[in-house]
């Protein structure tokens, strides 16, 4: 499995990884539970150990559309690192979710005290954001929509 190297923690040098995980507290969230809501205070974040989470957007009058799903090793939540520390999206557990939960204010404080640690954490979070931004842009292209798609598409 590739999880350990390529999850969020894989993006941190070992020393900083250990330091961060020291803040972790293992939690279990029951299937379908709302983890956070759009606009709520981003005071925590999670690294998923097993199960998954769906990020969604509140649209009045219809069920919140899911814009992305996260799975094992993924960082759940990055709004805690940037002011105003409010969630951009909502999140819901898909199936039973086990995760390491972090207290955002404590991590931020540690980052403030130790710039090297802070830089590493910020960099790892930024890498996650960059990946998601890239993925989002790719999806914006609606590549699978007509026209296009593999050798089977060419047409006169």
């Amino acid at each position: 499995m590739t999880t350990s190297q390529h999850g969020f923690l894989g993006g941190l040098p070992p020393a900083h990884r250990d330091r961060l995980t020291a803040f972790a507290q293992e939690v279990e969230i029951s299937a379908g539970a709302r983890i956070f809501e759009e606009g709520g205070a981003a005071d925590r974040f999670w690294i998923i150990r097993s199960g998954g989470a769906a990020l969604d957007v509140h649209v009045p009058g219809r069920p919140p559309p899911v814009v992305e799903t996260l799975g094992e090793g993924d960082l759940l939540g990055w709004s805690w690192l940037f002011e105003p520390y409010r969630w951009h999206l909502g999140a819901q557990a898909r199936g039973r979710l086990r995760a390491d939960e972090f207290d955002a204010s404590r991590v931020r404080a540690a980052c403030g005290q130790d710039p090297a640690f802070g830089l590493a954490v910020t960099g790892a979070v930024a890498a996650v954001i960059a990946r998601r931004l890239k993925a989002t842009r790719t999806r914006l292209l609606d590549l699978y929509g007509p026209p296009g798609g593999g050798a089977g598409g060419g047409d006169g």
Binding site: H6, A54, R62, E68, G71, A135, R139
Partner: peptide
């Protein structure tokens, strides 16, 4: 509304 599977680009599945 009924989809319970993953949402996102296919490369995100590589992790799993």
């Amino acid at each position: 509304g009924r989809w319970r599977g993953d949402v996102g680009v296919v490369t995100a599945l590589l992790d799993r």
